[in-house]
Amino acid sequence: MEGIVLNYTISPDDFTRAGEASSDVKRKLKQLGVSPEAVRKVAIAMYEGEINMVIHANGGEITVEITPERILMILADSGPGIPDVEKAMQAGYSTAPDEVRSLGFGAGMGLPNMKSYTDDLKIETKLGVGTTITMEVRLE
């Protein structure tokens, strides 16, 4: 069966638009009849990722591949990279600037939430080059 590939460009520094991509994916997954639980996981994980790209990485590209077996989200940016991935994965660890925190973001739960709401998460990052995060939610 033909899978579905969706591409999104995330614009930098625009919090009002952050979440547009994940909303669109959510709507399409519902139209496909994907289980509500999987829709929820994808929506939460992808929104976290989108926000991260806006806060830290000057935006980027998101590719979502959907097949009946799994949903793959590839979030690629050319931002500063993550210096210490292990630390970034700890709940509550945050490097978000104050103005971002004042908007209610930057609680240090981004990556930990992305991990807990997906079945697989891979981070490839290089300082000064960028970060690519690949997340997978498997469908029964």
Binding site: I4, K28, L32, G33, V34, P68
Partner: peptide, 9 residues
């Protein structure tokens, strides 16, 4: 789901 996939494409 099969039909939905084809239709979404």
């Amino acid at each position: 789901m099969m039909e939905s996939f084809a239709r979404l494409n």
